[in-house]
Computed example of a mutant assay.
Amino acid sequence: MHQHCQCGQRATLVDHVIAHKGDTNLFWDRSNWQPLCTRCHNKHKQRLERSQ
Rank of each mutant, 00 (worst) to 15 (best):
C7K: 05
L48Q: 15
W33P: 03
G8A: 02
N42M: 12
D15W: 00
K43I: 12
I18G: 03
A11Y: 04
G8Y: 04
Q34H: 07
A19K: 07
A19I: 02
F27G: 05
A19F: 01
Q6Y: 06
V17Y: 10
A19L: 03
Q9Y: 02
V14R: 15
M1E: 12
F27L: 09
Q52H: 11
L13G: 06
T38P: 09
L48T: 10
F27M: 10
S51W: 01
G22L: 13
A11T: 04
R47V: 12
V17T: 04
Q34P: 01
R47N: 14
Q3A: 08
D23Y: 00
K21Y: 13
W33Y: 13
G22D: 00
N32F: 05
V17G: 01
A11V: 02
W28E: 09
H2T: 10
K45I: 15
K43L: 09
A19Y: 08
H16D: 05
A19C: 04
D15S: 06
K43N: 14
N32S: 11
H16A: 03
G22V: 00
R50P: 10
Q3V: 01
Q6F: 15
H2R: 06
H41T: 08
T24H: 13
Q3E: 04
R10T: 02
Q34T: 09
T24E: 14
R39W: 04
Q3I: 03
P35K: 03
T38V: 12
L26M: 14
H2I: 01
N25L: 12
V14W: 14
N42L: 08
Q34Y: 11
T12G: 12
K43P: 00
T12L: 03
T12V: 02
I18Y: 01
T38Q: 09
E49H: 09
S31C: 12
R39M: 04
R10F: 06
V17K: 05
A11Q: 02
R30H: 14
D29A: 01
W33M: 03
K43V: 13
L36P: 07
M1L: 10
K21N: 09
R50S: 09
R50G: 13
Q3C: 15
H2P: 15
W28H: 12
I18S: 06
K21D: 06
C7V: 07
H41N: 03
F27K: 03
